[in-house]
Amino acid sequence: MAKTESGAWFIRMMLRTGRDKVGKTQEQIARLVHVSPDTYRAYEAGRSSPHASIMENLAKACGYDAELAEYMVKAADARAEEWEALEANPRFNALYIALAERFYGEIFKFDALMIPGILQLQGYHYLVVRLAEPLANDDFIDGGWDFKESRIADIQARTDRPQMQFLIGETALIQLRMIDEELYQEQMAHLRRWAKKPGVLIRILRGPVLAQRSNIEIYHVGKSKLAGPDIAYSEIADSSWLIDDPKRIASYDGLRKILWKQAIRIEVYNDDDWRYRLA
């Protein structure tokens, strides 16, 4: 991933969003890192990409801590020197997905076993996610919720109304109901509120799903003017993958269409007579 246009998009959008957050102009950042304003403007516009040797200073000037600066350096290294790509680095992928949620025009998320993170209530995160991460300490769980909260806020702040499809495995809902009935009812009400938002569709998928198909996300440019190239995302036991190969993305899209047709709209799910209406 990082050897292609996706890596360049990640770098320039990290620069843009970080600079906006710290309230600096492009000229101010340029002076801090000793490049011309035109050079820095080219970085954010995607006309050129900064060398890894100045990336750490750029990242710090845009308000990023040492960890995030390191990932930006790695992304620059991977593009310039064709070093090992970052496709399988979970933290890097999380940062990329957070940017994709802010700027891509079409978003699809499917999870067969858990409610997708940006749809979770805080109670769900601290109860169900903690159960699903038995080795995680309190700092990890707290940090995970803080990250989700920031992503939710960023999505809700969007004014361009992206098209968002969420597909949730019924297993996730059954498990939640077995764990805590009250939280289940609160979470379902929350999902239905989300489904009323412009551009948001939520469906529930009944029945078993193969393990290798149980977690898929797809991001298309759509009508967004700031999105990067189309990508797909998937997780496995010890890693995760960002995929920007068009052929592979097309295969994920084919699976998405099949699963989506098999699923039930959240608006009718849990209605006692939905089986008769669909018969």
Rank of each mutant, 00 (worst) to 15 (best):
A211N: 14
L95G: 11
L131Y: 00
I258W: 03
I231C: 07
V128G: 01
F103E: 07
A94K: 00
G46M: 05
Y252H: 15
P134S: 06
R151A: 09
I236Y: 14
R12D: 12
E181K: 12
G143R: 04
A98K: 02
E182L: 13
Q262K: 10
D111N: 15
G18T: 01
R12S: 06
G143N: 02
A2Y: 02
D138K: 07
A227H: 06
A211W: 08
D245T: 08
I141E: 05
R158D: 03
Y126S: 09
H34G: 05
L95S: 06
R47I: 09
D160N: 06
A69Y: 05
N137Q: 00
Y233E: 05
K148D: 06
H220I: 04
I97Q: 10
K261Y: 00
G46D: 10
V22F: 12
D230R: 13
L226H: 10
R192K: 08
R275W: 13
A98I: 04
D180F: 05
F110M: 04
W194C: 08
Q28E: 13
K225W: 04
T17I: 15
F103D: 14
Y104E: 11
W9S: 03
M1D: 15
E235D: 01
A132C: 03
I266V: 05
R91S: 14
Y40S: 05
K196G: 10
Y233M: 00
E27V: 08
L173S: 07
T159C: 02
M1A: 10
T159P: 00
N89V: 03
T39Y: 07
N270K: 06
D230A: 11
F140K: 07
G46V: 06
A8F: 01
E81M: 06
A8I: 02
W145A: 05
H190R: 06
L191Y: 03
S239H: 15
Y124L: 08
V73L: 03
Y126M: 08
P198F: 02
D160C: 01
A195F: 03
A189K: 15
I152G: 10
